[in-house]
């Protein structure tokens, strides 16, 4: 079962990598040559890398995964996380608690943070981000959360810009 599961992603990845390397090689051939003759111009390395990637992606397609169980058992990290998983309460997850949802939301939230950082300013974005994400990840101590978020947002901002003369985007707030 496990082997089968792992085998498929490998092949999918190898196809993605193959397409990626073709794209990379096409771009490599578009690197303009230097006006002066150079023994090795800027395009050689990219070409070599691109073709290496093609070969490796093909090899990956055919790579037989070694039996999984042996390795994951020896790997402490997996081991540990299994433990924690088991320890965690076994209740039904809502949609928002699913790992996949959390990852997507986190990525989107980071993108929003970046987008808003110079527009809404450091304090607002950071405060909202820290509070919001901490809450979202399941921390329900609202007071502690607000305090920490404020310390990070206001504290950093004032310490840096006021006390130490360092730039952070002020954004919407009037100071």
């Amino acid at each position: 079962m496990d082997t089968l599961k792992r085998f498929r992603p490998n092949q999918i990845i190898s196809v993605i990598l193959f397409l990626f390397s073709i794209f990379y090689i096409v771009l490599a051939y578009q690197i303009p040559g230097y006006a002066l003759p150079r023994p090795v111009d800027a395009d050689l390395f990219p070409k070599v890398l691109g073709f290496s990637m093609v070969i490796l992606s093909i090899a990956l397609f055919f790579e037989r995964d070694r039996p999984v169980d042996k390795e994951s058992e020896s790997e402490t990290e997996d081991h540990l996380s299994h433990e924690t998983e088991e320890k965690e309460e076994k209740r039904r997850e809502t949609f928002w608690e699913k790992a996949e949802t959390q990852i997507v939301v986190t990525a989107v939230a980071i993108a929003a943070y970046i987008f808003l950082l110079e527009r809404a300013g450091f304090v607002l974005t950071t405060l909202v981000f820290v509070y919001g994400m901490t809450w979202f990840y399941g921390y329900k101590g609202h007071l502690a959360n607000i305090i920490v978020a404020s310390i990070i947002g206001f504290g950093f901002y004032f310490l840096l810009t006021r006390g130490l003369g360092v730039y952070l985007p002020p954004g919407l707030l009037p100071f």
């Binding site: 310490l159 840096l160 810009t161 006390g163 130490l164 003369g165 360092v166 730039y167 952070l168």
Partner: peptide, 27 residues
């Protein structure tokens, strides 16, 4: 912007006063 790190650091060692002037340029 690096000033902040240093002052932050110096603050930890309780000596920020000596350095604030050096770093206290406007943002």
């Amino acid at each position: 912007h690096l000033c902040k790190r240093f002052i932050y650091a110096a603050g930890v060692s309780g000596m920020s006063f000596a350095l604030l002037t050096a770093c206290g340029e406007p943002p």
